[in-house]
Amino acid sequence: MSTLVATRDLALAAEFIALEADLLDTRDYAAWLALWVPEGKYVVPVNPDETNFEDTLNYAYDDAAMRSMRVRRLTSGESMSAAHAARTLRSVSRFRLLGHTEQGELQVRSAQQLIEYKFDRHRTYVANVEWVLRREGESFRIVRKVVRLLNGGDALAGITFLP
């Protein structure tokens, strides 16, 4: 692949990842759900170095059904923590094109610095995020998003947003 094409792919992917971040920070969950391919997997592993998500414990290991149930939980008003959800602000950066899958999907890694605000305090969640993105027209759909929290193996706190 030419450098030019790779540069363009990465720029488009970065733009898409920024969009995804914005949708989550503004809690536009319906739009967020629409970013996914039906077989997409949203994974937040406990161990930041994990490779076998299916046979290990994750914070989230979501197929389409779990994603939509998760969104319902966050928006239904039935959850006391989600009804007073933290405000979040995430910066995404350090985009790197790792390669392509056999199906031609982009494999990208980015950095994510997320700050939540709730109960008079800020908390920080920092993660490497790995993406598999499928081209669709001028944009992408998410095949896989893996959020590898730096402190995933240690004690976190109740999370009332989607990292």
Binding site: L57, S79, M80, S81, G158
Partner: peptide, 18 residues
């Protein structure tokens, strides 16, 4: 376990809030 427990479970964050 993932469904209910842990910081992103469907149960634990509400317990922690209470």
């Amino acid at each position: 376990h993932e469904h209910f427990q842990g910081p992103m479970g469907f149960g634990t964050p509400d317990d922690a809030e209470a």
